[in-house]
């Protein structure tokens, strides 16, 4: 078995475990964070602090590496301007996040913790991703063909 698959699997395991430990697998707690006028729950802010602390260190380490330990090159998004797609995507995402208190990671963990409910969200989320690809294909296939 190749080491890079093992690393990706372990990373997924750790991510899922972290979501459960942090309480973020519970949509009610996430919604509580977004409910500043009501039953506000600040836990998500502590989750962000913990995650950002470790990742800030990871980016510092990354700068010192010429390539990832198990791979030949870094696949990191290039610096691009803030555009209407980013802004409208974030708005739509936020509406969905607020409606249910779910984002992609916790929803996938939900498939094992609350399968009957989570499957509805995850199914619709995959459909939404497919719908986006359909739109993307129609919007951008022309410009790709010209290249």
């Amino acid at each position: 078995m190749k080491l890079n698959y093992v690393a990706s699997f372990i990373s997924g395991l750790l991510f899922g475990a972290g979501l459960v430990v942090s309480g973020m697998a519970n949509p009610q707690r996430v919604r509580g964070f977004l409910d500043i006028g009501g039953a506000f729950d600040p836990t998500l802010a502590f989750v962000m602090m913990g995650a950002l602390l470790i990742m800030a260190l990871a980016w510092r380490t990354q700068k010192k590496l010429s390539h990832p330990l198990f791979s030949t090159s870094f696949e990191i998004p290039k610096t691009m301007p803030v555009d209407w797609r980013l802004i409208s995507g974030a708005i739509l995402f936020g509406v969905g996040w607020g409606l249910a208190g779910l984002c992609p990671g916790p929803a996938l963990v939900g498939l094992v913790l609350a399968p009957k409910k989570a499957i509805l969200f995850v199914g619709a989320m995959i459909l939404g991703m497919g719908l986006y690809r359909w739109v993307e294909q129609r919007l951008f296939s022309k410009s790709l063909n010209q290249n």
């Binding site: 409208s88 995507g89 708005i91 969905g96 929803a107 509805l120 969200f121 619709a124 939404g128």
Partner: peptide, 14 residues
Amino acid sequence: LISAGLLVGFGARL
């Protein structure tokens, strides 16, 4: 749940 899922999936990709 269903409408939130659609928005999250589409919005995250966009």
